[in-house]
């Protein structure tokens, strides 16, 4: 188990390094940074001064290593727009996005996994068809539509929940449902298929032949094997939620990282864009790593791989 974890860690770190390299190179391919920073009306002398000030006259490898070294220490430089460090802006925005993502993931798992199990156990019955219909409807509604619909019903008409902002926990309910909903169909389908496959396995027949009750057969013997692919999917979905929270953050006026990324791109605020890309990638890689470890804990056969 330890050897497995270490191996996965090495893989995760090399992926992170590759991503950082790509993020760095892409930014430098997007044009002359010194010119963009100095602005369109700057004289050649001013551009040259900017180039020297920001260290852009050094060789690319040196610039990369220097940037990477500082990024590892969470020093992403200063924002071009906000006169403060990138790290402090992100630190301020991150909790909103993380909270939103975590609650959304929880909501989608709590709805989708039991629904998938029930649909599989009652395969081919009305219950199964209702669950699948629910799924298709879920996939058909875009996040922003659902978000606006939720606002109209629960915030404007019923006045149960606030319309927007991040003042308290009540503010997170509607956006989390809107964002979490997006993952429900995929997770539900995977749980259902995983469960169906496992339920026809020989060891399920063995479990029934032992005289175990249907609840023990499904919840002990089947669920643990059926849930393995769902763990991996949940990790990926969480990554999507963090990246995809841009729309929800916009609809509900929440100042999270998604919103920040959108602002930064609009304002050519390169250090912020670069840092957001890198941090989201790092989170994604961490999630995948965690999913691998959980899978290995669930399925002893994977610990060798």
């Amino acid at each position: 188990m330890l050897a497995f974890t270490l191996r996965r860690l090495v893989v995760a770190l090399s992926v992170a390094l590759t991503v950082s390299l790509i993020a760095f190179v892409l930014l430098h391919l997007s044009g002359d940074l010194a010119t963009s920073i100095a602005g369109p009306e700057a004289s050649p002398a001013q551009v040259a001064q900017v180039r020297q000030e920001y260290g852009l006259d050094r060789p690319l490898t040196v610039q990369y290593l220097d940037w990477l070294w500082r990024a590892v220490h969470l020093d992403f430089g200063n924002s071009f727009y906000f006169r403060t460090t990138v790290a402090s802006i992100i630190a301020e925005r991150m909790p909103v996005t993380m909270t939103l993502g975590a609650i959304s993931l929880m909501i989608s798992l709590v709805i989708a996994v039991p629904l998938g199990i029930i649909a599989a156990v009652f395969k081919g019955t009305l219950i199964d068809r209702l669950a699948l219909t629910f799924c298709v409807l879920g996939q058909a509604i875009p996040t922003f539509c659902l978000g606006l619909g939720l606002i109209i019903v629960f915030a404007v008409n019923l006045r149960w929940l606030p319309v927007s902002g991040t003042a308290g926990w009540m503010n997170y309910i509607l956006p989390s449902v809107a964002l979490g909903w997006y993952a429900v169909p995929a997770v539900m389908r995977l749980s259902r298929n995983g469960m169906l496959e496992v339920l026809s396995a020989d060891y399920i027949r063995t479990a029934r032949a032992k005289g175990l009750s249907p609840a023990v057969v499904v919840l002990k013997h089947a669920l643990r094997n059926a849930i393995i692919p769902v763990v991996a999917l949940a990790a990926v979905q969480f990554g999507f939620m963090l990246g995809g929270s841009i729309v929800v953050e916009a609809v509900f006026s929440m100042h999270g990282v998604g919103h920040l990324a959108w602002e930064a791109i609009a304002r050519n605020d390169f250090p912020v864009v670069q840092a957001v890309v890198l941090i989201l990638a790092a989170i994604y890689i961490t999630l995948t790593f965690v999913a691998d470890v959980i899978n290995a804990l669930l399925d002893p056969r994977m610990r060798v791989a």
Binding site: A209, R224, D299
Partner: peptide, 14 residues
Amino acid sequence: AMIFQEPMTSLNPS
């Protein structure tokens, strides 16, 4: 009690 013909798949891997 019953003994099945596929010992490779008749035990729960987990």
